[in-house]
Simulated assay, not measured.
Amino acid sequence: MLKLALFFLIVSLVAGVFGFSGISAVSAGMAKILFFIAILCFVVVVLLVLFSANTLFR
């Protein structure tokens, strides 16, 4: 997922350099959305591991 966010960021930068502001804005928006989804998934996995590890060591 982070690879896709990086891909859309690069597409956005290249489109911005060449003057395609619409494509650049959409690509930047997609990069932001994918980045925050990846961060949310990471936090959920970390919390699940912490809670499951907590119950294993009781």
Rank of each mutant, 00 (worst) to 15 (best):
M1Q: 05
M1T: 09
M1Y: 15
L2S: 06
K3P: 05
K3L: 12
K3N: 04
K3M: 10
L4K: 15
L4A: 14
L4I: 07
L4M: 14
L4N: 14
A5I: 01
A5M: 02
A5D: 00
A5S: 13
F7H: 10
F7V: 08
F8L: 07
L9K: 09
L9A: 06
I10P: 01
I10K: 05
I10D: 11
V11F: 01
V11Y: 02
V11E: 08
S12G: 14
L13Q: 07
L13H: 06
V14A: 12
A15V: 04
A15K: 13
A15D: 05
A15T: 10
G16H: 03
G16K: 03
V17Q: 01
F18C: 06
F18E: 10
F18Y: 07
F18D: 06
F18I: 15
G19R: 05
G19W: 07
G19M: 02
F20E: 11
F20R: 05
F20M: 09
F20N: 08
S21N: 15
S21C: 02
G22A: 05
S24M: 15
A25N: 09
A25Y: 09
A25Q: 03
V26W: 10
V26T: 13
V26F: 07
V26K: 02
V26A: 00
V26P: 00
S27H: 00
A28Q: 13
A28L: 14
A28E: 10
A28M: 12
A28V: 03
G29M: 05
M30P: 01
M30W: 00
A31C: 06
A31E: 00
K32H: 04
I33F: 12
L34C: 04
L34Y: 09
L34I: 04
F35H: 04
F35M: 13
F35V: 03
F35L: 12
F36K: 07
F36D: 02
F36T: 06
F36R: 09
F36Y: 13
F36C: 05
A38V: 03
A38P: 01
A38N: 04
A38Y: 06
I39L: 12
I39K: 07
I39P: 01
I39M: 09
L40R: 11
C41Y: 14
C41D: 14
C41W: 13
C41N: 15
F42K: 14
F42S: 13
F42G: 15
F42D: 14
V43Q: 03
V43F: 07
V43S: 04
V43C: 02
V43K: 03
V44N: 03
V45R: 07
V45T: 08
V45L: 15
V45D: 10
V46T: 09
V46M: 11
V46Y: 12
V46R: 14
V46E: 08
L47K: 06
L48I: 12
V49L: 12
V49K: 10
V49D: 04
L50A: 09
L50Y: 08
L50M: 09
F51T: 11
F51P: 01
F51H: 04
F51E: 09
F51R: 10
S52C: 03
A53I: 10
N54M: 09
N54W: 12
N54Q: 10
N54C: 07
N54R: 15
T55K: 13
T55D: 13
L56T: 08
L56F: 10
L56Y: 11
F57W: 11
F57I: 13
F57A: 10
R58N: 10
R58C: 06
